[in-house]
Design a protein around this nucleic acid. Structure first.
Length: 522
RNA sequence: GGCGACAUGGCCGAGUGGCUAGGCAGAGGUCUGCAAAACCUCGUACGGCGGUUCGAAUCCGCCUGUCGCCUCCA
């Protein structure tokens, strides 16, 4: 039986995961505020939790994954005086708030899809759950956890003795902190808004028992998480910077409403840094995912493919900061290509058994590859025959499985798992190329495929193999390589080199291996 | 100021007190008409100072440095 250990922010320890309901996992992750393009920081967070969800599913759990879309309530400034982020951006872009939300929601999912991040099972919108939020606020008021002043409703943090338990904050400290512009009407500086009164100029407003207004930022997550996952949920995830105040407030609202523990395991991913500084919109150093994919940013020299971005991020642990640099991306890319080559080889040999085919596919690991005309036939093929022997010693599959499971069970250590994959699979490369095939190649391939495709999702087999124009192009190439091979046999180096040089000019690199030649698009 | 992290070889990055993480780059070698690619081999690193211990990158303390949160942010 698998024993997954999760670092729980509540206890600051790794704990054995036990779901409330045997075989089921409910997980809520704070989604984006859709007022701008997603950047590398979003990618780190959502890829991290993507792997968590994927791994639980791989283990056989039925997972319900809820991730909200925040389209109202996020204020640009202090919770009392700030303007709603959505409203502000709507004005700048001259769009209806709903247009704006749709635009950036679409772009968010588009970029996550590219990164091979599975979509949540439920993506609830904050604006779609105003009644639920109002209901919750009413309960909090009736139970004495909140108070209303002139159309504004605030949560009374002193009404909950353990407020601050997640972030380790104490109320008296917050009080002494000399914060700017705390509203006079709040009873305690740490009290936070549940409902804000809206004046007539405010674009987004709803009717409520306290007059027209809009919900505070934190209440949406409380309302939606409990609506879809119950009063107590297994796992709640989000970025480290949301630990306080956002997650602390979520706890206060839920536990104040239901008098039951809100979350059993809190998970927080760390930040992406750029030159040691957090990458964030407000700091102006965020590179959007779209910019990574196109290379269109002053800090980027070239485009980077989603596959490489994903691999790069998974090469560090989700609770570690990931320091971004193109140098680091470059080495991640090289490593990724090497790994994919082994995976492809393994898969192809397993598929073809003892046939003479002996080639492999190059994944479109580079964004340049994507841009190339023949982006879907970025292949290496060889036509030479090689004797294969599938009676080799069996590969120690159990050790591989156990090792990978151990990595993932230890707080989803994808970085360690990737290291382990390299360690175990790399020695397989040469024997496979020489036709020395372990007897359990089928099992091995099935497992590795499953793990790399379904859990880490860093490799998708057959992704490019069905391209329409691939077959003719391949055949033409095979013909050229055959002609060149004849020339080489006749020691007609002029012809052989001419073919290779001309192909090189067109953008096709020919490489002569032992007894066979291969080509790839550059 | 309060709270919380982190400091690992040229770069990135795992790390359960004693046994090689891994990747990239680099060096040497094998193969090859040449080239390229590929494959094989190679690096004994853990911020500083103390302490615990037979033994610490790993535990404790102090110091230095970096970062995050305390205001919106994945």
């Amino acid at each position: 039986m698998h024993k997954v250990h999760i670092f729980n922010t509540l206890s600051r320890k790794k704990e054995l995961f036990k779901s409330m309901k045997e075989g089921f996992v409910g997980i809520y992750v704070c989604g984006p505020t859709v007022y701008g393009d997603p950047h590398l920081g979003h990618a780190k967070s959502y890829i991290s939790f993507d792997v968590v969800v994927r791994y639980f599913r791989y283990l056989g759990y039925r997972v319900r994954y809820v991730q909200n879309i925040t389209d109202v309530g996020h204020l640009t400034d202090d919770a009392d005086d700030g303007e709603d982020k959505m409203a502000k951006q709507s004005r700048i872009e001259q769009l209806e708030p709903m247009e704006l939300a749709e635009k950036y929601t679409y772009r968010y999912f588009r970029d996550m899809d590219r990164l091979n991040v599975l979509r949540p099972d439920i993506s609830p919108r904050a604006t779609g759950h105003i009644p639920e939020q109002i209901a919750m606020i009413k309960t909090l008021l009736s139970k004495g956890h909140a108070y209303e002043i002139g159309g504004n409703v605030y949560f009374d943090v002193t009404s909950l003795p353990d407020y601050g338990k997640l972030s380790g904050r104490k109320l008296d400290e917050a009080e002494s902190g000399s914060r700017v512009a705390t509203s006079d009407e709040k009873r305690h500086p740490a009290d936070f808004a549940l409902w804000k009164k809206a004046d007539s100029s405010h674009i987004m407003q709803w009717d409520s028992p306290w007059g027209n207004g809009f919900p505070g930022w934190h209440i949406e997550c409380s309302a939606m998480a409990t609506k879809y996952l119950g009063k107590t949920i297994d796992i709640h995830g989000g970025g480290l910077e949301n630990q306080f105040p956002h997650h602390e407030c979520e706890i206060a609202q839920c536990e104040g409403t239901y008098d039951e523990p809100f979350v059993r395991y809190w998970m927080h991913n760390n930040m992406v840094t750029l030159n040691g500084q957090k990458m964030g919109k407000s700091l102006g150093n965020a590179i959007s995912l779209e910019q990574f994919f196109t290379g269109d940013h002053k800090l980027l020299n070239r485009p980077w493919s989603p596959e490489v971005i994903r691999f790069f991020l998974l090469q560090s642990h989700y609770r570690s900061t990931t320091d971004f640099s193109e140098e680091a991306l470059t080495s991640a890319e090289s490593g990724y290509r090497n790994l994919v080559e082994i995976l492809d080889l393994l898969h192809l040999v397993a598929q073809n058994g003892t046939t003479s085919f002996n080639g492999n596919r190059k994944g479109d690991a580079t964004a340049e590859g994507k841009k190339s005309k023949k982006n879907d036939v970025d292949e290496v093929n060889s036509y030479a025959t090689g004797k294969q022997d599938s009676s080799g010693a069996p590969f120690d599959l159990q050790t591989l499985k156990d090792g990978l499971h151990e990595c993932m069970n230890d707080d989803f250590n994808s970085a360690k798992a990737i290291g382990f994959l390299f360690e175990k699979l790399r020695p397989l490369k040469q024997p496979l190329q020489n036709g020395k095939i372990p007897s359990n190649i089928g099992e091995l391939s099935d497992f590795v495929t499953q793990f790399c495709r379904d859990v880490l999702a860093i490799w998708s087999l057959g992704k490019t193999s069905d391209a329409q124009d691939e077959v003719p192009f391949n055949e033409v190439m095979q013909l050229l390589l055959e002609l060149r091979e004849q020339a080489r046999k006749n020691r007609d180096w002029n012809t052989a080199d001419q073919i290779r040089d001309r192909l090189k000019e067109i953008g096709v690199t020919v490489e002569d291996g032992a007894g066979s030649s291969t080509y790839k698009l550059s």
